[in-house]
Design a protein around this nucleic acid. Sequence first.
RNA 1: GGCGCUGUACCCAAGUGGCUUAAGGGGAAGGUCUGCAAAACCUUUAUUCGUCGGUUCGAAUCCGACCGGCGCCUCCA
Length: 461
Amino acid sequence: MLHLYNTLTRKKDIFSPVETGKVKMYVCGPTVYDYFHIGNARSFINADFIHRYFRYLGLDVKFIMNLTDVDDKIIKKSNEEKVAYSVVAEKYSWAFFEDIGKLKIYPATMYPTATSHMQEIIDMIAELIKKGFAYNNEGNVFYDISKFNGYGKLSGKKIEELEAGSRVEVNEEKKGPLDFALWKKAKEGEPFWESPWGNGRPGWHIECSAMSCKHLGETFDIHAGGSDLIFPHHENEIAQSEAASGKPFANYWLHFGFLNIDSEKMSKSLGNFFTTRDILKKFSAETLRFFYAQTHYASPLNFTADALEAADSGRLKIDNLYFKLEEIVKDEDCDDSLFASNYASFEEAMDDDINTPKAMAVVFDAVRDINRQIAENKASAAYLASAKKFIRRTAGDVLAVLGEAKKEAGLESQLIELLIQLRLEAKKEKNYALSDKIRDRLKEIGVILEDSKDKTSYKLN
RNA sequence: GGCGCUGUACCCAAGUGGCUUAAGGGGAAGGUCUGCAAAACCUUUAUUCGUCGGUUCGAAUCCGACCGGCGCCUCCA
């Protein structure tokens, strides 16, 4: 039974979807104004663990991630670069897809954009005005939070306290300081869309309400995002959606913890800002995923080079076993019952609010057991086949921390095999100087040789 | 000022009342195997969970105080 910590109820709730067997999930995606950073990557990967686990469970998942493709930051960048906002948005949208592909993120069902949902956005704003939750002030439309009863229920904030401690600039156009923009009147030179309130563009929060409603319905199962989005973004989404539909919005709210760099907040001004692209030049996607999976999704995580190195060593332990199994397992047919308790433990961990650190411990327990069976030569063919499947389904399909299999480039692998043969002959003649030289040289170019009793295998670094 | 999170070994980290005299990974030390390596396996590495009190038959887990770290309240994953 899957339990998820729900920000709305502040406890772990039993997950019970609106429609049995189906999951409707919405995750706030990127604003496409720059390459995304490793903090964003953490959120995307955490969402991916959840997505992949639902798939593992055999649920029919509809997973929507939006791209915010028009907003202040994009406009600012387009002005700096003297190109149309859409050029910026398009460039970084492609970069986003490229990067999440590299991160082995299982694709969402759909990646809708704000600009392709203008009609839905305008319709929702019109509905909010009609129902009295919003007001038009000379082309700027604001949401009147005093009209919405449950405002603050997600973030646990009280309206009076928010107003008292408010750092929001006084805006004469708004009735209340916490009212937020649904539609922003276009300023000179800004991109705009036509609307009943004049030319302008949507506020940030409304797109998520409009798009989630269109693609998932008025009430859906899971809404997730970074913990900084709780307030005001998600709070405002709830206000918009529930006021417009009169129905509950998302049933489960999940929030991902923040990433710090060397115990400091990542920011451009501190000079500790890393894009995912930068990091992927030094570490593999699997290493990054392994590193993130070691910490629960909601906890803060400290990012250091040493920790990444440690993660790299750790995940190789799983890889080494899996590659070994790929070599010795011929027949994929297997009896899962041999690993029934391992699967049960894995699922128990994941069912407990997607406890990936615990799930990894389960995988490592299995890795040790399997290695021991192999070392002691006690493993049956059926056991090894089941072992391989267990590792693939957990470390591979759900966590996606397994590295790529050895590349079987035809000529390349033949040449390596040839060198291995020559080295074995040298070894037979006890010419260890030569055999070690071959091994060392191959290692230098990324081919690692491992001798076992009767043969030598290799892996590519 | 308000709200919330957090402090577990050299490092990362799970565990939130008895199954734990605290998982798992990294690192380190010793051993097995090996011509030597590598990989793998075995052993060791927290009588203790920020500090001090309290509740309880029993607490890392609950309560209180104190000390430290962090986030949100403004765009932000």
